[in-house]
Design a binder for these strands. Structure first.
Lengths: 237, 237
DNA sequence: TGGCGCCTTAAGACAGTATTAACAAATTAC
DNA sequence: GTAATTTGTTAATACTGTCTTAAGGCGCCA
């Protein structure tokens, strides 16, 4: 997961960054609206955390201009003020959620997860693909009802695949989201992680692993055909 | 797909070329307006990417002169800064879309696809021909609702046929659009790809493949006769 | 019926991908 | 503080899918 924090107060910013990094989220930060709009336009973040009081322009203005520039990334507004007015204005202006400072770490993380999930079309915090289940809240993976141990990076990759189930992700996209452009390793590492994930999944499903290779392009988490139908058949009971 | 980039800055040009090539687009590039007009006049590009600041003349002037020379190729303007003024002038002068630098790779590619599609008379990103469906955005192919795996080159050929549905394409045209004159293989390769495509399509339609041979000229993607009528007949149930 | 173009299959070259093992770095346990 | 374990990364090698060429058979047109 990759987030952009638009916040001028260094103390707040540091707190937020620490919280997110602790949850395996790759964080970029800018301290003004102009740079925020620019970065949001250029890169594919999963979420934008937007402070309302910025040196160069008001948060609402940042949001307005981003939406005008066709930036569709979800926005979570962080505000010091707890005024209903701001909240309404924010949500009406295209924000996806609203949090007043100070906030607690767990709530911030939960809101982020929820906003990102919903923005990708997953109302539930559990994403199922055949016998594979990913629980975004718990950051856990199950296969055929049995919990599978996956490492941090392995989980990140599987989460990315799950959130964008059905769309092909290039290796470059994985790197961007997993490392945020800093100290990026070789593209090859993605193959290795995919291989490990497949092995872990396949040993419990009896062969299926749901991660399809799109030759020359990347990987997709497959929507198993006739998913609904197979669920109607007596499987586990 | 074949694009002409009219851009004098080598850094920008390289970025653009890399992005397009990664998406299987054949790219030609010139670094001034005069050459741009000449090439656009002479060859059949799917799109022109036009920088506004060129050494010999302004981008708007290039556009004006191309249109005066009856070049109908769609134009996507790339400008250094987000000046509303430029935007209005560009679109008013016959440009089809507008993007400010720097831009995000995915957005550039999406805009190109959209502009090209529309210029060929397809407002939707999905092109249907009988039971055959091509999704330009996802670069995927479906037959009778079922996804068909096609390789990169196979897809490129089918996309070309779809975008120009109803018009005959010679093998030379296929080569030009698929290879852009560089390292072109034998003409015969087109036969081979067409054959493979037909087979893949026909196995799922029960015989129809929609790709017609125009003897001595080339191939067309043809709308099956009585399309509407056959749909009214009881098919599955 | 001859000639040319088209259809189809097969096979090799090549490039992208899978898999494993070994090593380095970080974390945890004691 | 050191050893044990886990995690992340790279390199080597085997593998697989794709592109291309070639070759034989078939069909179209004169």
């Amino acid at each position: 997961m990759r987030a952009l924090v638009i916040e001028d107060d260094p103390v707040s910013a540091r707190l937020i960054e620490t919280a997110l990094r602790g949850d395996n989220i790759v964080v970029e930060r800018v301290d003004n609206g102009e740079d925020g709009i620019e970065l949001a336009r250029l890169y594919d973040f999963d979420i934008l955390l937007l402070d309302l009081t910025l040196p160069d322009m008001e948060g609402h203005e940042v949001l307005r201009r981003m939406r005008a520039a066709r930036v569709r990334t979800p926005v979570l507004i962080l505000s010091g003020r707890s005024q209903v007015d701001d909240k309404v204005r924010g949500l009406a202006g295209g924000a996806d959620d609203y949090l007043t400072k100070p906030f607690n770490r767990a709530e911030l993380l939960a809101r982020i997860q929820a906003v990102v999930r919903r923005s990708k079309g997953h109302p539930e915090s559990v994403i199922r693909t055949g016998k594979l289940t990913i629980n975004i809240d718990a950051q856990s993976v199950e296969v055929d009802g049995q919990r599978v141990h996956v490492t941090g990076k392995e989980y990140n990759i599987l989460e990315l695949l799950s959130l964008r189930k059905g769309t092909t992700l290039t290796k470059e996209m994985f790197l961007d989201h997993l490392y945020g452009g800093r100290d990026e390793p070789e593209l090859k590492i993605i193959d290795v992680f995919i291989c490990k994930l497949r092995k872990k999944i396949a040993t419990l499903t009896g062969g299926e692993h749901y991660i399809e290779t799109i030759w020359g392009r990347g990987y997709v988490l497959k929507e198993p055909e006739g998913e609904a139908a197979s669920r109607l058949e007596p499987e586990t009971v």
